[in-house]
């Protein structure tokens, strides 16, 4: 084994084959992928290229059919169902491509949910933590709204708040800005960058070249292979871009 002491994520020849009787889909075709602590990676690629499949494996929701995945040096395939659940709860904040909020449940209850399954016993005032997380994503005034009473972008932000609420060391976001207008997208990215500045590792999936510019590193997938993996020389700062956004927004509001 090579040096892997700081590698948060390391996949070795990770493969995912969906066997559906007649046809077999090779969603991941042997991916070697390493992410160090404190990185902010954008994963790009066409639809069906395997982005979500990779994210699910990285998020310990799914296991590779071949190859292996080390999370903080621990080989995930060897862990029990309960251990995987605890990792998902404590280490990882996952933003799903389709929000995956509980229907007919208030925003604050949705965000509170991961805290209810916390086993560390440290998260006591769950309601308050949930409200704070919602305030962070700019939904402090929408606590009691149910998903059906929120816009797509607001639902997306509730999903982000739910990923943040447990203070994870790794955030995996599958198209977190897919449903947001450009300004809100930049706001979310500003939030991610702020978290990243605090040392939290962030991996996000995006279709848009513009969004990927905010990451420190871009990885591109095609047909289950990594075809591009490059550092972004000088990535954009969302906080700075927001300032140039602001006058426009003020003008519109006036």
């Amino acid at each position: 084994m090579e040096d892997q002491k700081t590698a948060v994520i390391r996949t070795v020849g990770a493969e995912k084959v969906y066997d559906m009787g007649k046809t077999r889909v090779r969603a991941l075709a042997g991916v070697d992928f390493t992410v160090e602590q404190g990185e902010m990676v954008a994963i790009m690629g066409a639809s069906g290229s395997g982005k979500s499949t990779l994210m699910n494996i990285l998020g310990c929701l799914d296991l590779p059919t071949a190859g292996s995945y080390f999370l903080d040096g621990v080989r995930v395939e060897t862990l029990s169902r309960n251990q995987l659940a605890d990792i998902r709860n404590q280490k990882i904040g996952f933003v799903f491509q389709g929000f995956n909020l509980l229907p007919r449940t208030s925003a604050v209850a949705n965000v509170e949910l991961p805290l209810l399954y916390d086993r560390s016993g440290e998260k006591i005032n769950t309601r308050k933590l949930a409200s704070q997380a919602l305030a962070k994503v700019g939904l402090g005034d929408r606590l009691d709204h149910e998903p059906s009473e929120l816009s797509g972008g607001q639902q997306q932000r509730v999903a982000i708040a739910r990923a943040l609420v447990t203070d994870p060391s790794l955030i995996l976001a599958d198209e977190p800005t897919g449903n947001l207008d450009s300004r809100t997208s930049v706001e979310v990215l500003a939030l991610f960058q702020e978290l990243n500045d605090q040392g939290i590792t962030i991996i996000l999936v995006t279709h848009e070249e513009d969004i990927s510019k905010y990451a420190k590193r871009i990885v591109e997938l095609r047909d289950g292979y990594i075809i591009r993996d490059e550092q972004v020389a000088d990535h954009r700062r969302a906080a700075v871009d927001l300032e140039t956004f602001t006058p426009v927004a003020v003008e519109v509001e006036v």
């Binding site: 998020g59 929701l61 169902r81 309960n82 659940a85 605890d86 990792i87 998902r88 709860n89 404590q90 996952f94 799903f96 995956n100 909020l101 509980l102 229907p103 949910l113 991961p114 399954y117 916390d118 739910r162 447990t166």
Partner: peptide, 16 residues
């Protein structure tokens, strides 16, 4: 089923 999936995904154990 989806609700259960969400709960499991965010860290609920099977026993929960």
């Amino acid at each position: 089923t989806r609700e259960i999936g969400i709960r499991l995904a965010i860290g609920a154990r099977g026993s929960d």
